[in-house]
């Protein structure tokens, strides 16, 4: 592997602030990483003896496992902090927790937290790298990067492509990170969902806002289907999962009106029969498991660029 320049920042907190050059560097590096991933012996040494910790304050299977797999393929040591069994339960502050981890010699902390800005708070308080694995409704940059990587893999250049993001935009960090990343690459982004799940002034991010999935799906190149959280319905933001499915669910019937080569994406975990029908989730247009595979490659790229390359700072 050639020596790469590395990223401008020590951290990956979000795509809003990520320079376009870094965005492209990550995507390009992920291609090489995917090639390593496809080898029979999936291990290379660049992060040998680097210590990486995943600190997850919210449940996760996919993202956390994906980071562990990525780190191990680059020969890093990985530790997982299970928050329920840590001192967080004893009232320790986030800053104290991460300073303690730093004192043990950690090179990077991968954090997921229910509060927006938590990853930034950690980054401001430790010298090591911080990767945001989702903070509140703010950002989930690695998910968006793997989404974009998958889009490029399937259809080449992103510029000018129409991407429809459908679901709970208000509470979605995946939507925000996708919007920031896709807009940087020149995609046409449309967000679709019930008005109660649409954040104020979202159109100022340069996206088109619509409440009509049937209309928007017709000329879409990609439809990225967000997970609907049950508690939003309980919070009165929409009346029932059945009605949501009827109005916004991605079904075979809806896809009949779409382009022949439309690509259906979903960050997982799936609520089959709510935001996506099983037929679509397992059908010919879906790339959901490719997204999962690419997630490992993209995370390898990020870890490599943050810990293996030199900072340009």
């Amino acid at each position: 592997m050639n020596k790469v320049k590395g990223l401008i920042s020590k951290d990956l907190l979000g795509l809003r602030e990520l320079p376009e050059s870094d965005l492209n560097l990550i995507l390009k590096t992920a291609t090489s990483m995917k090639e390593i991933f496809m080898r029979p012996i999936r291990r290379v040494p660049p992060l040998l003896a680097k210590n990486i910790i995943t600190l997850f304050y919210e449940p996760s299977t996919r993202t956390r496992t994906s980071f562990h797999m990525a780190a191990k393929m680059l020969s890093a040591n990985t530790t997982n902090i299970a928050v329920s069994s840590s001192s967080v339960k004893k009232g320790e502050t986030l800053i104290d927790t991460v300073k303690n981890l730093e004192a043990m010699g950690v090179d990077a902390i991968i954090i997921r937290h229910k509060m927006a800005g938590a990853a930034r708070l950690v980054a401001e308080n430790i010298k090591g790298s911080v990767i945001n694995a989702g903070d509140g409704f703010n950002e989930h940059p690695t998910q968006a990067l793997l989404d974009i990587f998958t889009m490029q893999e399937k259809k080449g250049e992103i510029e000018g492509k129409k991407v429809v993001i459908v679901g709970d935009i208000l509470h979605s960090r995946v939507a925000r990170s996708n919007i920031w990343g896709l807009k940087k690459l020149g995609a046409k982004v449309t967000v679709v969902g019930p008005p109660t799940l649409m954040p104020k002034d979202i159109e100022k991010l340069g996206v088109h806002v619509s409440y009509n999935i049937d209309k928007e799906i017709k000329d879409a190149d990609f439809v990225n289907v967000l997970r609907i959280q049950l508690e939003r319905q309980e919070g009165g933001l929409f009346p029932s999962l059945e009605e949501y499915h009827k109005l916004f669910g991605i079904t075979s019937a809806r896809l009949k009106k779409a382009k022949k080569d439309i690509i259906v994406m979903h960050p997982g975990p799936l609520n089959r029969g709510v935001e996506i029908s099983s037929e679509v989730a397992d059908g010919p247009y879906n790339v959901i498991l490719d997204q999962v595979t690419n997630g490992v490659a993209v995370r390898m790229a990020i870890l490599f660029l943050l810990l293996g390359g030199k900072f340009r700072r």
């Binding site: 927006a116 409704f137 703010n138 950002e139 954040p199 002034d201 100022k204």
Partner: peptide
């Protein structure tokens, strides 16, 4: 405050 900035920072407005 609910508005553009609460939307971009993902904070409830």
């Amino acid at each position: 405050n609910e508005g553009y900035f609460s939307t971009i920072w993902g904070l409830k407005g």
